[in-house]
Write a protein that binds this DNA or RNA. Structure first.
Lengths: 341, 341
DNA sequence: TTGAAAGCGCTAACAA
DNA sequence: TTGTTAGCGCTTTCAA
């Protein structure tokens, strides 16, 4: 068995509590004994047992990350490793560890959340999605358990800490960009309307259309399952219209990839026939053909800031709910062009 | 504070140890008291404190997942969420939790591993990469800490449990497929040669060339950083050759995406001018244009099996090292075509 | 079939 | 500045 605090104490000729204080780098221990104790720790290859520590202080120095349930291919979105990287970066600085849930469906996800919360495995949770009537969110509210949302809460907005982009404005700006280039018929392809992120982006899109006095018809708006043949259906529907769109706002780069494929299938080209804009600025959006005009939502920051908020919150239960809006930046690339040129 | 085992005991009118036995569903407790105790647990909303339990039994019911360090964009590969999903599926069945490392560089990753191992945060680790002279692997060997590798160990192969595909054979088969379609000049684009997966795929490629008595020149083999402008350099190099390749084996779908883009830039088409084959069968490989001929390595299984092996191993320290080869399947799609047709 | 009690390794009053 | 001691919540002998 590994060395314990007692072994170290004995070796250094001090009391266990002194060793404990050295670990915490307490200012009330003389430099001299600190040195002696540290030496003993080195020699014994001592490392504190985190479980024992957690038990004593009733915390866990760990945060949980809840992904959307992964039944469909949604998890194959590089968005997730990237937020995780941001979360991990901050967590690591403060020596926090990361738990992740990877539930197959809503039920198993909920079980994992319960396990984390009730078993005191984590001090707080980050939800990587936000949707209407989420049982997880409700559970956490009821338990009064610290959590932050990446995205915008569907309700209780003022009581929940969340980190988001201004998706409304970004989407508006994309649509505006297309309109400025002469496009009159714009379409929107998004994921599930249950997700608040879809709602925000759609609303922004609509608002741009309205402000520019263009006709606004629901025929130009499709919500597609991430999986469904990569947007083929969505594209078929849009381009069967009397006046097919010449510009599209798509809710996610990966989806856009499918859209590019689909429009080629029906004999059209991007950007010659259709201008495409989307969200996330995934690495792959630079290396597609054509490279995508897309909103860089700064996924890494989204993760980093959410970890920051959460850890602040777990350290101080009285910390007020806050909202952090991470700035976005539109990357103009060659998937868009003026309507006539 | 949440209810403890003592509260339950008092409420049910039994001793704490009895409650503990009920939790473990011990066969030596009468059905009657079990019922009484369970009722008390329900009423109090009792959940065992995992930290206390871990401390007592000296384990943690958690496994750690080590990603490659994430300085570059490699982590944006959907491969990772997908293995994680497989790992999580098995882990969840046995009520294990998942820790992940997301180190920025080798150093922070190593720190995270140390924290997990020395602090007893996890019972075992899964490494999601395998490369030459990996300090993490060496550390785990020295500590005699349970771990399994997804991929093939670069050394001590017979002493380490690992889960892999037959990458050699798969790669060979891809090359063979191209050769059968009349391609005489084949190129290989892979990631770092430090990774064993690259080595295996390259060797398989070479062997196919050799067996078919085609010329084998290192000029046709490029190793590119994942990041470097998405394979542009690799493509430029290959197509500056006297006899540019008409068929390519690329080590990863995401890379292939970059390659498709790059060859278009220099005025070529896939598959008309160049046939492309690659690995992983990521979701995106179905929705690119053209859809990719690629090896489905069954990422989910890779994860699932590795979790299985690891948990077996942690439960029984004497479990011998084993090797599991997950079958692959080549998906033939339209990124390949006969040389003349 | 159940209970009493010791102990897992650490922290944090309280004393000195 | 340091030591003593009593837990944190659970499991697990040993006894009954």
């Amino acid at each position: 068995m590994a060395a314990t605090i007692k072994d170290v104490a004995k070796k250094a000729g001090v009391a266990p509590s002194t060793v404990s204080r050295v670990i915490a780098d307490s200012s009330r221990i003389s430099l001299n004994t600190k040195k002696r104790v540290r030496k003993a720790m080195k020699e014994l290859g001592y490392h504190p047992n985190i479980n024992a520590r957690n038990l004593a202080v009733r915390s866990s120095q760990a945060i949980g990350v809840i992904m959307p349930s992964s039944a469909d291919k949604a998890l194959q979105n590089p968005f997730f490793p990237e937020v995780l990287r941001g979360i991990g970066a901050f967590a690591h600085e403060l020596e926090y560890s990361l738990y992740v849930s990877t539930g197959e469906n809503d039920e198993t996800t909920f079980e994992e959340v319960q396990r984390m919360v009730n078993g005191h495995r984590v001090d707080g949770l980050i939800l990587l999605y936000s949707r209407n009537n989420d049982p997880v969110q409700q559970f956490l509210m009821e338990e009064n358990f610290p959590f932050v949302i990446v995205g915008k809460p569907s309700k209780d907005e003022s009581e929940i800490t969340y980190v988001d982009n201004n998706n409304f404005k970004a989407s508006q700006e994309l649509a505006k960009h297309l309109i400025d280039m002469g496009h009159q018929h714009l379409g929107f392809i998004g994921g599930s309307l249950e997700l608040t992120v879809t709602q925000e982006r759609l609303n922004g899109f609509r608002s741009a259309i309205r402000e520019n006095n263009l006709p606004l018809s629901d025929d130009y708006i499709v919500h597609t399952e991430f999986l469904k043949s990569g947007g083929t259906e969505a594209v078929e529907k849009l381009f069967a219209l009397d006046h097919p769109p010449t510009g599209l706002v798509v809710s996610d780069d990966l989806m856009t990839l499918g859209v590019i494929h689909a429009i080629k299938e029906i004999g059209l080209q991007c950007p010659e026939d259709v201008s495409l804009t989307s969200f996330n600025n995934l690495y792959l959006s630079e290396i597609t053909h054509p490279p995508l005009t897309t909103v860089d939502i700064n996924i890494y920051q989204l993760g980093f800031q959410s970890a920051r908020c959460l850890i602040e919150q777990t350290k101080n239960k009285e910390e007020p709910a806050k909202r952090i809006i991470v700035p976005y930046e539109i990357k103009y690339r060659s998937s868009t062009k003026p309507l006539y040129s």
